[in-house]
């Protein structure tokens, strides 16, 4: 939101795409954010949100599954809609999802991060949906509707929106089974036979989101201008590394927003000179 506010002050058009699960909300109290002593994470989040809204930028809730640079722009897959942007600012937070055993090896061979992208391939087959994200139940319902035999696995309680006829199993994935392709999933000591596994977490790992993004020690690598190794892509906040603190995130957001605006102005100038 800090990045958005600062890009907006520079006259740029901004859209904020969010998974809708801000980590900050869970903080009981924050005492080191200057000007907001003794504030709860939730109050602080509300205050940030109101500021962004007042300036005309409201977070849109959904999932960004992939970003593809092409022709000097970026195509962004947001809720199966293809958006186009001239710059991208990543403010993904620090939750770097740990991979399950078998996940890396079987990615693309039964393991998928996007039900609407790959669901059709599993019509008439069995799939396990590991539902961690808020929209997981909806995606599981979608799969069931198109003829996939779904079992929903989650560490939380059964979501209210999940269709009544979809079996639910409480737990976490211990292992994804199969050698050339997925054959099943182990949850505790139970083995669920399946040809597909949809891992619907809240965050997609930055390197999966944007192929070729340089990382360092598990965080997105940036320079002092918050620029990543991909021209036009900036990153800020917890996803760039420690300290994982709000003040730092907000400060980096300012830099990223301003630098992205500057980048846009520079391309525009180049285009004019070229013509």
């Amino acid at each position: 939101m800090s990045a958005a506010v600062n890009a907006l002050t520079r006259g740029k058009t901004v859209r904020i795409l969010s998974s809708g699960d801000p980590f900050l909300k869970k903080a009981e109290r924050v005492d080191n954010y200057l000007g907001l002593y003794h504030v709860s994470g939730e109050e602080m989040m509300a205050s940030f949100l109101n500021h962004a809204k007042a300036m005309g930028a409201e977070p849109e809730i959904g999932r960004v599954v992939n970003i593809l640079p092409f022709g000097g722009k970026f195509m962004v897959n947001f809720n199966s809609e293809i958006l186009e942007a001239k710059t991208v600012i990543l403010a993904l937070g620090a939750s770097s999802p740990k991979q399950f055993p078998g996940e890396g090896e079987l990615l693309g061979r039964g393991v998928s991060y996007c039900a609407t992208c790959d669901g059709m391939l599993y019509r008439g087959k069995r799939a396990v949906v590991y539902g961690q994200s808020d929209s997981a139940a909806e995606e599981a319902n979608f799969l069931s509707r198109i003829g996939v035999e779904v079992t929903f696995v989650s560490g939380r309680e059964r979501p209210a929106e999940l269709n009544a006829d979809i079996p639910y199993l409480r737990g976490t994935i211990a292992e994804i089974l199969g050698s050339r392709a997925v054959t099943g999933v182990r949850v505790g000591s139970r083995i669920l036979e399946a040809q597909g596994v949809f891992l619907l977490r809240n965050s997609v790992a930055p390197g999966t989101l944007l192929e070729g993004l340089a990382m360092q020690d598990g965080f997105v690598k940036v320079d002092f201008a918050m620029q990543t190794n991909i021209p036009g892509v900036f990153a800020c906040g917890d996803c760039t590394g420690k300290p994982l603190q709000v003040s730092k995130a907000v400060g980096e957001g300012l830099v990223a927003g301003q630098q992205a605006a500057k980048y846009l102005d520079e391309i525009r100038k180049e285009e004019k000179e070229y013509v």
Binding site: V65, N66, L68, F70, G71, M75, N77, S80, E81, I82, C114, T116, C117, D118, M120
Partner: peptide, 14 residues
């Protein structure tokens, strides 16, 4: 590819 696959549509111009 397939018409219902969003990443496939993103790849098309490429």
């Amino acid at each position: 590819w397939a018409p219902w696959c969003t990443p496939c549509k993103m790849l098309a111009p490429l």
